[in-house]
Design a protein around this nucleic acid. Structure first.
Lengths: 169, 169
DNA sequence: AATCAAAATTTTATTATTGAAATAAGTTTT
DNA sequence: AAAACTTATTTCAATAATAAAATTTTGATT
């Protein structure tokens, strides 16, 4: 009655709705990210990548390997190398040897790094709170859950594995 | 009105939840975008920017000005120039004069451009449908609505205007 | 041990994007 | 109609990110 949902989803409403979701998700994300990036630059003279890197390190006091950082931040290895190098010369982070593996090391925040991050993180949280000001608690929690499902689905079943979905196209 | 919302939101749970929402939104967005970018490159030999540009043009048959494209795609003017130049030399788009304003022109798709976009758009929709496969219709529609609110709020009340929020800090 | 493949990081060359200055056309003010 | 703005686009130099190759170390197999 309401929706006879065709089995062939080539033209199904659902795939169109999902497409619109993606477009809107991307737009929201860019809108927020661009604004945060601009504020970071103008008001703190930081790049957003730098903030993200410090945020990742701040959450794991024992430190993270380069490859962990690369994976978590979803940026290339070379990029992490350059970022960590810069933070190191500025005294915000340092590399410490991993006992038993001379290839790798852990990147940790210095005390100065922790302190500077703490300051900026507070300001950053305020910006985000402003930008997402339209979200009430319930709405925010729903969103959190839905996005969580999407992420899990992509990370587990998703891209690399590509289970067969349909025969024709 | 409806929300007793503490005036000091510095440590309020809500701002923390919003921060988590932002982090998750960004993660989902990157996960999807990276995957689409990779597939575009590997399977179609297209950049994602190219696809986005064609998509914008496809929706507006009468054509769009460079500045419109720049605004819609949220990329710089110079970037649009370069992209349109490339599409033009490949015969997918062309510039047509705007009567009455010799500064501007409209960028339109050529027939070839429309045809090639149509093909790729179909494939693209399939990828998105897969990536967002965890979203049912209801969930997708909720998400659509919530993201719509977020976007509207940012675009109208948001960044440029910056009504005073707090004195301290 | 000697060899080989995998893992962790760095280096490199290339590409994409930006932001700012430059050019040019249109609009408003005086 | 001159001067001063604003808008539309392009050019250009600098930045940031990537992908791929190179280095070094580890772990496993023979």
């Amino acid at each position: 009655m309401a929706n006879p949902a065709p089995l062939i989803n080539e033209q199904s409403p659902l795939s169109k709705v999902r497409l619109r979701v993606w477009i809107r998700l991307l737009k929201a994300s860019r809108l927020i990210e661009d604004d945060l990036r601009r504020k970071m630059r103008d008001e703190c003279d930081w790049t957003l990548s730098r903030f993200d890197l410090l945020a990742a390190l701040d959450r794991v006091p024992e430190g993270l390997k380069m490859s962990d950082l690369s994976r978590r931040l979803m940026v290339s290895n070379g990029n992490v190398t350059a970022l960590v190098d810069k933070l190191t010369t500025e005294g915000l982070a340092h590399r410490v040897a991993v006992p038993g593996d001379r290839r790798a090391f852990l990147v940790q925040l210095t005390d100065q790094g922790k302190a500077e991050f703490a300051k900026t993180a507070q300001v950053h949280e305020g910006w985000v709170d402003d930008l997402l000001g339209s979200l009430g608690l319930d709405e925010a929690e729903d969103l959190l859950q839905t996005l969580g499902h999407v992420i899990d689905d992509i990370e587990t079943g998703g891209p690399g594995i590509s289970q067969p979905r349909k025969e024709g196209l």
